[in-house]
Amino acid sequence: NSASGPLPDGWEQAMTQDGEIYYINHKNKTTSWLDPRLDPRFAMNQR
């Protein structure tokens, strides 16, 4: 992992069949290639 600590509440790390890691936001029912622990847009929304 490139980030430390647990994923934010509602997020899950998953892997594609090709072995690529992505992240699932169960609250918004969206997915992201960016780790939410590193995404400044997500961090701003949590303050």
Results as ranks from 00 to 15, higher is better:
Pro8Glu: 07
Thr16Lys: 02
Trp11Lys: 00
Lys29Cys: 12
Asp35Ile: 03
Asp18Trp: 03
Glu12Met: 06
Trp33Lys: 02
Arg41Pro: 15
Leu7Tyr: 14
Lys29Ala: 12
Pro8Asp: 04
Ser4Val: 08
Leu7Arg: 03
Lys27Ala: 11
His26Leu: 10
Gly5Ile: 11
Asn45Thr: 08
Arg37Glu: 02
Ser32His: 03
Leu34Gly: 07
Pro8Val: 07
Thr16Leu: 04
Leu7His: 05
Gly5Asp: 08
Ile24Gln: 05
Leu34Ser: 09
Pro8Gln: 05
Gln17Ala: 13
Glu12Val: 07
Glu12His: 06
Glu20Val: 03
Trp11Arg: 01
Glu12Pro: 00
His26Phe: 10
Leu34Trp: 05
Glu20Met: 05
Gln17Glu: 11
Gln46Tyr: 10
Asn25Pro: 00
Trp11Asn: 01
Pro36Phe: 01
Asn25Ala: 02
Arg47Ser: 09
Arg47Gln: 04
Pro40Lys: 13
Met44Ser: 10
Glu12Arg: 06
Trp11Phe: 03
Asn28Phe: 15
Thr31Ile: 01
Ser4Trp: 06
Ser4Leu: 09
Ser4Asn: 09
Gly5Asn: 11
Ile21Lys: 11
Trp11Ser: 01
Ala43Glu: 14
Gln17Phe: 07
Asn28Ser: 09
Ser4Phe: 08
Arg47Asp: 14
Ala43Phe: 12
Ile24Phe: 03
Ser4Tyr: 09
Ser2Arg: 07
Ile21Gln: 09
Asp35Cys: 05
Pro40Cys: 12
Leu34Val: 09
Asn1Glu: 06
Arg47His: 07
Glu12Asn: 06
Tyr23Gln: 00
Thr30Tyr: 07
Asp39Ser: 11
Tyr22Glu: 02
Asn1Val: 09
Thr31Trp: 00
Ala43Pro: 14
Ala3Phe: 13
Asp9Arg: 06
Leu34Glu: 03
Asn1Tyr: 02
Leu38Trp: 08
Ala14Met: 12
Ala3Cys: 11
Trp11Val: 05
Ser4Gly: 12
Asn25Cys: 10
Glu12Leu: 04
Asn45Trp: 09
Leu38Val: 14
Gln46Pro: 05
Trp33Pro: 02
Met44Asp: 15
Pro6Glu: 14
Thr16Asp: 01
Ser4Cys: 09
Pro40Thr: 15
Arg41Ile: 15
Leu38Pro: 12
Glu12Lys: 09
Asp35Tyr: 04
Leu34Met: 07
Asn25Thr: 01
Asn45Lys: 06
Asp9Leu: 08
Trp33Ile: 03
Tyr23Trp: 08
Ile24Asp: 00
Asn28Trp: 15
Tyr22Arg: 01
Gln46Asn: 14
Pro6Asp: 10
Asn1Trp: 02
Lys27Tyr: 06
Thr16Phe: 02
Glu20Pro: 00
Pro6Met: 10
Ala43Lys: 12
Asn45Ala: 10
Asn25Lys: 01
Tyr23Asp: 00
Glu12Cys: 08
Gly10Ala: 04
Ser2Met: 10
Pro40Val: 13
Ile21Leu: 08
Met44Ala: 10
Ile24Trp: 02
Lys29Gly: 13
Met15Trp: 09
Ser4Lys: 14
Glu20Ala: 05
Ala14Ile: 04
Ala14Val: 06
Arg47Val: 07
Thr30Met: 15
Leu7Asn: 05
Glu20Arg: 05
Ser32Asp: 01
Trp11Ala: 01
Arg41Leu: 15
Glu12Ala: 06
Lys27Asp: 07
Met15Ile: 08
Ala3Thr: 14
Pro6Trp: 03
Ser32Cys: 05
Asp39Gly: 12
Gln46His: 12
Arg37Tyr: 02
Ser4Asp: 10
Thr30Arg: 02
Arg37Phe: 03
Met44Pro: 07
Trp11Gly: 01
Asp18Met: 11
Met15Pro: 04
Gly19Ser: 05
Leu34Gln: 06
Ala14Cys: 10
Ser2Ile: 12
Pro36Val: 02
Thr16Val: 02
Met44Cys: 07
Asn1Thr: 10
Asn28Lys: 10
Trp33Glu: 00
Ala3Trp: 05
Gly10Leu: 05
Ser2Cys: 14
Glu20Cys: 04
Pro6Asn: 13
Asp39Val: 14
Asn45Tyr: 06
Asn45Gln: 07
Pro40Glu: 14
Lys27Trp: 06
Phe42Asn: 13
Asp9Pro: 06
Lys27Cys: 12
Trp33Leu: 03
Asn25Val: 00
Asp18Leu: 08
Arg47Leu: 07
Pro6Val: 11
Met44Tyr: 09
Asn1Ile: 04
Tyr23Asn: 00
Trp33Tyr: 07
Met44Asn: 13
Tyr23Cys: 00
Asn25His: 14
Trp33Met: 04
Phe42Thr: 13
Asp9Met: 07
Pro40Arg: 12
Pro8Trp: 04
Gly10Gln: 07
Met44Glu: 04
Arg37Asn: 03
Leu7Pro: 02
Ile21Thr: 13
Tyr23Gly: 00
Gln17Asp: 14
Leu38Asn: 15
Lys27Leu: 10
Phe42Leu: 12
Pro8Thr: 11
Met15Ser: 14
Pro36His: 01
Ala14Tyr: 04
Phe42His: 11
Asn1Cys: 01
Gln13Lys: 09
Arg41Ser: 14
Asp18Ser: 12
Asp18Glu: 13
His26Gly: 05
Ser2Trp: 02
Lys29His: 12
Arg37Met: 03
Lys29Phe: 04
Thr16Asn: 11
Met15Lys: 13
Met15Ala: 08
Tyr22Phe: 07
Phe42Ala: 11
Leu38Ala: 14
His26Ile: 07
His26Asp: 10
Glu12Thr: 05
Pro36Asp: 00
Pro8Gly: 07
Tyr22Val: 01
Asp18Ile: 08
Gly5Tyr: 07
Ser32Arg: 01
Pro6Gly: 10
Arg41Met: 15
Ile24Pro: 00
Gln46Phe: 09
Thr31Phe: 01
Ile21Ser: 07
Ala43Gly: 11
Gln46Cys: 04
Ala43Leu: 10
Gly10Met: 07
Ala43His: 10
Thr31Leu: 01
Asp18Pro: 03
Ala3Val: 15
Lys27Thr: 09
Ile24Tyr: 02
Lys27Val: 09
Ser2Phe: 12
Ser32Leu: 00
Ile24His: 04
Gly10Trp: 05
Asn45Ser: 08
Thr30Leu: 15
Asn1Leu: 00
Thr16Tyr: 02
Arg47Trp: 06
His26Met: 09
Pro36Met: 03
His26Thr: 06
Arg41Gly: 13
Met44Phe: 13
Lys27Gly: 11
Asn1Met: 08
Phe42Glu: 13
Pro36Thr: 00
Glu20Gln: 05
Asp35Thr: 03
Gly5Arg: 07
Leu7Ala: 03
Ser32Glu: 02
Lys27Pro: 07
Ile24Arg: 05
Asn28Gln: 11
Trp11Met: 03
Ala43Ser: 13
Leu38Arg: 13
Glu12Gln: 09
Trp33Gln: 01
Asn28Leu: 15
Gly10Ile: 03
Arg37Ala: 04
Asp9Val: 06
Gln46Lys: 15
Asn28Cys: 14
Glu20Gly: 03
Glu12Ser: 08
Thr30Ala: 12
Asp39Trp: 15
Gln13Ile: 06
Ser2Tyr: 07
Arg41Val: 15
Lys29Met: 08
Asp18Thr: 12
Leu38Gln: 13
Gly5Pro: 04
Trp33Cys: 02
Ala3Asn: 15
Ser4Ala: 05
His26Val: 07
Thr31Val: 01
Met44Gly: 12
Ile24Glu: 03
Leu38Ser: 15
Phe42Lys: 07
Ile21Asp: 05
Pro6Ala: 13
Pro36Gly: 00
Trp11Thr: 02
Met15Phe: 10
Gly5Met: 10
Asn45Arg: 06
Asp18Arg: 08
Tyr22Thr: 01
Pro36Lys: 00
Arg41Phe: 15
Ser32Tyr: 02
Asp39Ala: 13
Gln17Cys: 12
Ser32Pro: 01
Trp11Cys: 03
Ser2Leu: 08
Ser32Ala: 07
Thr30Asn: 01
Trp33Asp: 02
Asp39Thr: 12
Ala43Asn: 14
Leu38Asp: 14
Gly10Thr: 06
Leu34Phe: 13
Ala43Arg: 12
Thr30Gly: 04
Thr16Glu: 02
Ala3Lys: 15
Ala3Gly: 11
Leu34Arg: 10
Asn45Phe: 09
Pro40Asn: 14
Trp33Thr: 03
Gln13Met: 07
Ile21Cys: 08
Gly10Arg: 05
Gly5Leu: 09
Asp35Gly: 02
Ser2Thr: 11
Ile21Pro: 11
Gly19Val: 03
Asn28Thr: 08
Gln13Asp: 06
Thr31Arg: 01
Gly5Trp: 06
Asn28Ala: 14
Ala14Asn: 14
Tyr22Ala: 01
Ala43Thr: 13
Tyr23Arg: 00
Ser4Met: 08
Asn25Phe: 02
Tyr23Lys: 00
Arg37Pro: 00
Trp11Ile: 04
Glu20Thr: 04
Arg37Cys: 04
Glu20Trp: 02
Phe42Asp: 11
Tyr23Val: 01
His26Arg: 12
Ala14Thr: 11
Pro36Ser: 00
Gln13Arg: 09
Thr31Pro: 00
Lys27Phe: 06
Thr31Cys: 04
Ala43Cys: 11
Phe42Tyr: 10
Arg37Gln: 05
Ser32Met: 04
Pro40Leu: 15
Ser32Gln: 03
Asp39Gln: 15
Asn28Glu: 09
Pro40Gln: 15
Tyr22Cys: 02
Trp11Asp: 02
Trp11Leu: 01
Thr16Ile: 01
Trp11Glu: 02
Ile21Ala: 11
Asp35Lys: 06
Asp35His: 06
Glu20His: 06
Asn45Gly: 08
Gly19Cys: 03
Leu38Gly: 15
Gly10Tyr: 07
Glu20Asn: 07
Arg37Asp: 01
Asp35Pro: 04
Asp9Gln: 06
Asp35Phe: 02
His26Asn: 04
Thr31His: 00
Pro40Ile: 14
Pro40Ser: 14
Ser32Phe: 00
Ala43Gln: 11
Tyr22Pro: 00
Pro8Lys: 09
Asn28Pro: 01
Ile24Ala: 03
Met44Val: 10
Asp18Gly: 11
Tyr22Lys: 01
Gly5Ser: 09
Gly5Gln: 05
Asp9Ile: 05
Asn45Leu: 13
His26Cys: 05
Tyr22Gly: 01
Leu38Lys: 15
Pro6Cys: 11
Tyr23His: 01
Lys29Ser: 11
Thr30Val: 15
Arg47Gly: 13
Glu20Leu: 04
Phe42Ser: 13
Thr31Gly: 01
Asp35Trp: 01
Gln13Val: 09
